[in-house]
Amino acid sequence: MTEVLYRADSYLRETTARIVSAEAAGIVLDRTNFYARAGGQPGDTGTLRWAGGEVPILEAVKGEGEAILHRTPEGAALPPPGTEATLVLEWERRHRHMRMHSAMHLLCSLIPGAGVTGGQVGADKSRLDFDLAEPPTKESLTEALNALVAADHPISDTWISEAELDANPGLVRTLSVQPPRGSGQIRLVRIGPEEAPVDLQPCGGTHVKTTREIGRVEVTKMENKGRQNRRISIALVEG
């Protein structure tokens, strides 16, 4: 099992860890600040350093059981098990994923009642697919998104039991991907105050602390991907 540190602190840029195993498929450590690819969010990249060496981490992915694999270039020199090492995130990329993922939750809040049929978080652009006959216009969505960003809503998480989720099935917006089960607990990401959230839904991804940190967002494209499948793409506007 790999202890996942990003759930408690998604801003942890580096951490020390001990090598559990190091093979061609990837390196497993006893703990990590790297997000493993899941739910449409890419796995983190960065660098693993130890006394006498370092290796690039091409992506973190899920391994067997609760292990996280840190993939390395083919033929790279790997540290032996038991080695103490330091994991350093490629922070700018991770932070863009955090901003994008939070913006996607805001987009969900602006299209209530429509199931999400797919999605992909990206550093440069992201998308959500909705089971929706007629979406709002690009201009109106862009304006509404940036109003929510400017409102500086807090973003936090909480945990509920699987039984509580079963009693509130409307919390799940995604039709293609269901929250992971088995541990008995489901993580919810909340945007806004507890008594009147802007958005509240199960999510295992990484997020920023407030909507203002997202920065300006633009709806860049809207596409028909089926009779009632509408793809909405967004991008961060820098500068």
Rank of each mutant, 00 (worst) to 15 (best):
M1V: 14
E3T: 13
V4G: 03
R7H: 14
R7E: 14
A8N: 13
D9P: 06
Y11N: 10
R13C: 00
E14V: 03
T15K: 00
T16Y: 02
V20W: 03
A22E: 01
E23K: 13
A24P: 03
I27M: 06
D30E: 08
D30H: 00
D30I: 00
R31D: 01
T32Q: 08
N33H: 01
F34L: 11
Y35S: 10
Y35P: 11
R37D: 10
G39P: 07
G43S: 09
D44S: 10
T47K: 14
W50I: 12
W50K: 11
P56K: 09
A60D: 03
A60H: 13
A67I: 00
I68A: 10
L69S: 12
L69N: 11
T72E: 08
P73S: 08
E74W: 06
E74L: 13
G75C: 05
A76N: 08
L78P: 12
L78T: 03
P79R: 10
G82W: 02
A85I: 09
A85K: 01
T86C: 00
V88Y: 09
E90S: 12
E92S: 14
R94T: 13
H95D: 13
R96C: 06
H97E: 07
H97F: 15
H97D: 11
R99C: 14
S102G: 05
A103K: 04
H105P: 04
H105S: 06
L106Y: 04
L107Y: 02
C108N: 14
S109Q: 06
L110I: 02
L110V: 04
A114H: 10
V116G: 03
T117V: 12
G119W: 04
Q120P: 05
D124G: 12
D124Y: 11
R127W: 15
R127I: 06
D129G: 05
D129M: 04
D131I: 06
D131P: 02
L132H: 02
A133L: 14
A133F: 07
A133G: 02
E134Y: 05
P135W: 07
P136S: 04
E139A: 15
L141I: 08
E143V: 07
E143C: 04
A144I: 06
L148H: 09
A151V: 00
I155E: 05
T158F: 06
T158P: 01
I160K: 01
D166W: 08
A167T: 01
P169K: 10
G170Q: 14
L171P: 02
L171R: 03
R173L: 15
S176L: 11
S176A: 15
S176M: 08
Q178K: 05
S183T: 15
R187I: 05
R187T: 05
P193I: 00
E195I: 01
E195W: 03
V198S: 04
Q201I: 04
P202Q: 09
G205H: 11
R212I: 11
I214P: 09
I214H: 07
V217Q: 08
V217E: 06
E218A: 14
K225H: 09
G226W: 09
G226Y: 09
N229M: 05
N229C: 12
R230G: 04
I232T: 06
S233W: 13
E238K: 11
E238N: 11
G239L: 09
